[in-house]
Design a protein around this nucleic acid. Structure first.
Lengths: 204, 204
DNA sequence: AGACGGCTTGGGCATACGCCCAAGGCGACT
DNA sequence: AGTCGCCTTGGGCGTATGCCCAAGCCGTCT
């Protein structure tokens, strides 16, 4: 067999990945604007000058690190939705995740930091919008399969509640831990009296 | 009548208020860690050294500015809830606010920036937790008047959805603007089949 | 009128930052 | 074996920051 040739470019790519992981971890720990080039290099165990060899700027590194992390997680969620045998099972997965989400884990903080940073960075904004829109479309499709009315708006509210709960759990403890999913599940039941505005589904 | 004596201490308090307002505005514009002492002083139209005369540190100024703004707004909300003639009217006000919330206004960004900064500042965390807990209790009380089941959890979800929608609207446009309140209103209707966990209200 | 005290100013110090650069290392091709 | 090219290093420059401080201003009280 051919011995695996570890070229310099290979090692370079590996170092590049270490830098991205270090950047993502530091965004969660210290906040987007609390990350410095030297801190990233130190955590990745490389020299301080390497950051600007692999990336045009610190902002470019953070953008790639954050978008990569967010995209991987949303794809994980949509894959879970697609793998579920029934729509009900898929939705149970989403609602169950809401109960177990700690809110103070690094991933949640990375999400929120990135949302906020995107407010002041147009390129980052486009990346975030694309990822979230895709996830929302996927979820809305599943909700429609389930027969939930207004799937688009319901998906938006569900995802917003997810991120909002992340945000709140960083500061305020839940009144009763693990008890929000029964509340949100009510969003998915058809009350049959939803005639306040123009309905998308015909009511026979 | 006695002429209003404008003492030096009065002018000092007025400047102090200007500094707090400038700090709050800059938190929303540039982010919590993007605010500098010189920027605050410039916006408040005072000398650069005045910040550390009125406040022990820049962090102390930002903490007071953010908590003051948040507390004023939540008190405004609870006052609106208390002033409503009927519980239904109060809830309509909350839900209507959801539809009109732009999400990109300075106040929304200030909220989210403060949540996030509180993650890394214990004193700020205590202040935020106290304010949000009070608002949630108030809202839960109104929900209970309305007969909504699980008022505590529902209030938590409503407030989380509010903040989450703020967060999302900064990045992703709503699929159909002004259409989330019918979805959330479904949270407040009793489906009557909520027997998945132990209910707080007896079901006769 | 003179002294006092709180308010305000602008500059200065030490530090940390982003980005750049000359020099070295090390494996892959001719 | 020699040359080349990519990767890596540590230091340096200019800038901005938080906090401090000596000096000045201006009403108030004795």
């Amino acid at each position: 067999m051919p011995p695996p040739p570890v070229t310099a470019a290979d090692r370079g790519r590996e170092v590049r990945q270490r830098l991205l992981r270090a950047g993502a971890a530091l965004i969660a720990e210290r906040g987007w604007s609390g990350v410095s080039t030297r801190a990233v290099a130190e955590r990745a165990q490389v020299g301080p000058g390497l950051v600007h060899y692999h990336f045009a700027s610190l902002g470019a590194l953070l953008t790639q690190a954050a978008l990569g992390t967010i995209e991987a997680l949303t794809q994980e969620m949509t894959a879970m939705l697609a793998a579920a045998a029934t729509p009900e099972e898929a939705l149970e997965g989403v609602l169950g995740a809401l109960d177990t989400y700690p809110g103070t884990d690094p991933t949640s903080l990375l999400f929120i930091e990135t949302y906020l940073a995107a407010t002041r960075d147009e390129e980052l904004m486009r990346g975030v919008a694309a990822i979230i829109s895709t996830a929302r479309e996927e979820l809305a499709g599943r909700l429609d399969d389930h027969g939930v009315p207004r799937p688009q708006e319901t998906a938006a509210v569900l995802l917003a509640a997810l991120d909002g709960l992340m945000l709140h759990r960083t500061a305020v403890p839940e009144p009763a831990s693990g008890a929000v999913s029964p509340v949100l599940r009510r969003l998915l039941t058809d009350p049959g009296i939803d005639a306040s505005t123009t309905p998308r589904r015909a009511n026979p």
